[in-house]
Design a protein around this nucleic acid. Structure first.
Length: 554
RNA sequence: GCGUCUGUAGCUCAGUUGGAUAGAGCAACUGCCUUCUAAGCAGUGGGUCAGGAGUUCGAAUCUCUUCAGACGCGCCA
């Protein structure tokens, strides 16, 4: 981590000049704008001048004097002031070379272990099992799955879980919908009422039942359709390259244990014993208003004794924590944002630090067809299924376009556009770069060029870097670590797509400018192939975090 | 009415504790395949960062305000 080293050096120099002024964490080191010919730049002099009230330029001059007499010369070959007082640094090439060799030999992009083996449960999708997944579910699915991969990468022990709402009224209605379709197929004249599920997939299941030749109306339609829908959803997710570690059924919250207590009873008991619920008008209310963020108290047990959805959800989250997870991550559509405060309150009331739960909201996807909004409803059976979209657009392209955006931004997904531009989708730009590199390495191998790089050392590498672009590529490879750390910090993987597009652009540019395999110059060829190999690894690694394939040829 | 989020190029969107001349893809236009994959490269045009005020060396980014849009404010799930 070169940046980190540079920050340390600057901090040290600063404390030598102004020992009484603490500058720590108040300045940045980043890459300068394109027009400035330096590796890194820092605003430390602005931050410093703010504190000690002199001009940034004066601070900068002082700073450079001190820097040049320090040990840092081994790393920094040139420093200069630019603009209103930025410090720009040119580093010795050996610094980049040794860092890149370290990455290559350790096969790790950074030495931090952010997660430190802590257990994280990430719950996402959790769509009602009343029909196939549609494109609206896909965003949460892509975001959750990718975040799980990123968190795993930075050292968390991650489990992915799907919460199946199999206990509510909607499943009863779903079961009845199947029963009516089944009877219709048997020739009965019954209409399927409004408010029942009208999708064709119900009829398909009914037909399947008929073909089993069990014309028995005593069938458990509710269970049959529920099992069938869970299978359908699993299958949809599989096509989207997502597999869950665990499927948690809401109904299990109501199951009694040997002491005749359900998970729900246990949760209510805890809340009662801690005096966070009270009875008003025959109903039990959780005092979420006291927590601060929520604006009113919430009913958890109705006055007829039935629990609300919120009560079940509290019991579910209590169960997650009971299973020993250090952190819980929930991925929700932004339409549930009003629910965040009360859930956090309940976590605290159960006796846990509400910081243990992280709720990621993503804006809903508006589905358009040729600029026109498409209304979707699972009940009416009018929706575009995820399966259809994957078939038309492809899983890779769908995931990439959903992951390109920050979850906080609303997103329009135009089917016509997505279909039409299949070959112009940014994902192919990135995949193409990977395929090209792969092909170069393969060709080199066929030409009997040595593609084993384990013996490349610092001297060889720094002597054979010939073009400015070699260094640009190396720096870009080293930046991957920062991107991963940023994604883990922000719980968002959309920085990866941006990074990949940038990296692909840099490679395509390089490819057009320089011939990588040059038989006249073996050392140069070897150096460039080495950089290609590293690029290939980074592309593959990053694409995998997005759940997108890295094709060897296209 | 209250609350959360959003408003950046014709379109879809990036922009990392405030930083130097605000970026990418698509769309439009101009060049580049006898040479490791043209799903590519190079270049041109395109901007009141929704409007206004403030904070400071410096604002797309922070504060206030106006406008526009999405969503939420159940003893629904």
């Amino acid at each position: 981590m070169i940046k980190k080293r540079l920050i340390e050096i600057l901090s040290e120099v600063w404390s030598e000049i102004y020992p009484e002024v603490n500058i720590k964490n108040s300045f940045v080191v980043k890459e300068p704008p394109k027009n400035i010919d330096a590796d890194y730049a820092s605003n430390i002099c602005f931050q410093g001048s703010k504190i000690i009230k002199t001009s940034p330029i004066k601070v900068a001059e002082e700073f450079i004097k001190k820097l040049e007499s320090s040990e840092s010369k081994k790393i920094i070959s040139k420093v200069f002031i630019a603009g209103p007082g930025f410090l720009n640094f040119v580093l010795n090439r050996e610094v980049f070379c040794s860092e890149i060799l370290r990455v290559f030999t350790l096969k790790k992009y950074f030495d931090l272990n952010i997660g430190d083996g802590q257990k994280v449960l990430i719950e996402f999708v959790s769509a009602n099992p009343t029909g196939p997944l549609h494109i609206g579910h896909a965003r949460g699915a892509a975001i959750g799955d990718s975040l799980a991969r990123v968190l795993k990468k930075v050292g968390f022990a991650v489990d992915k879980e799907y919460y199946v709402n199999d206990a509510g009224n909607q499943i009863d209605v779903l079961g009845k919908s199947l029963e009516i379709r089944y009877k219709q197929l048997l020739g009965e004249k019954i209409d399927l009422p409004d408010g029942y599920y009208h999708g064709d997939y119900i009829t398909d299941v009914a037909k399947k039942l008929l073909s089993l030749d069990k014309k028995d109306l005593g069938l458990d339609f509710r269970k049959i359709i529920l099992d069938e829908m869970v299978l359908v959803i699993k299958n949809d997710l599989k096509k989207f390259n997502i597999e869950f570690d665990n499927w948690f059924f809401e109904s299990s919250i109501f199951e009694k244990n040997v002491e005749n207590q359900s998970k729900l009873d246990e949760a209510i008991e805890v809340l009662k014993s801690r005096n966070y619920i009270k009875n008003v008008d025959g109903a039990w209310w959780l005092m979420t208003n006291d927590f601060g963020d929520d604006d009113k108290n919430r009913v958890i047990i109705r006055n007829d004794g039935r629990p609300t959805y919120f009560a079940t959800d509290i019991a579910y989250h209590k169960n997650k924590l009971d299973r020993g997870y250090d952190y819980l991550v929930d991925i929700w559509g932004a339409d549930h944002h009003g629910y965040v405060a009360r859930l956090k309150a309940s976590i605290e009331y159960l006796g846990n630090n509400p910081g243990k739960i992280k709720i990621i909201l993503y804006h809903l996807v508006s589905l358009l067809r040729g600029g026109e909004k498409v209304a979707m409803s699972t009940r009416s059976g009018e929706f575009i299924s995820l399966e259809e979209v994957i078939e038309e657009v492809g899983s890779d392209a769908t995931r990439f376009s959903l992951l390109m955006r920050d979850g906080n931004s609303p997103l329009d997904f135009d089917l016509e556009l997505a279909k039409k531009k299949t070959n112009e989708n940014p994902v192919y730009y990135v995949q193409y770069a990977h395929a090209r590199i792969n092909s170069i390495l393969k060709n080199a191998k066929n030409e009997k060029i040595n593609t084993d790089f384990s013996e490349i050392n610092l001297d060889f590498l720094s002597q054979n870097l010939s073009e400015k672009e070699d260094l640009i590529l190396m720096k870009a490879i080293l930046n991957y670590a920062d991107v991963l750390v940023l994604c883990a910090k922000e719980f968002s993987s959309h920085h990866i797509t941006g990074y990949l597009l940038d990296l692909a652009g840099k490679f395509h540019n390089y490819y057009a400018k320089h011939k990588i395999v040059d038989k006249e110059n073996q050392n140069l060829t070897r150096t460039r192939l080495f950089i290609c190999e590293l690029l290939r690894q980074v592309f593959k690694d990053a694409l995998e975090l997005l759940g997108i394939s890295a094709p060897e040829s296209m």
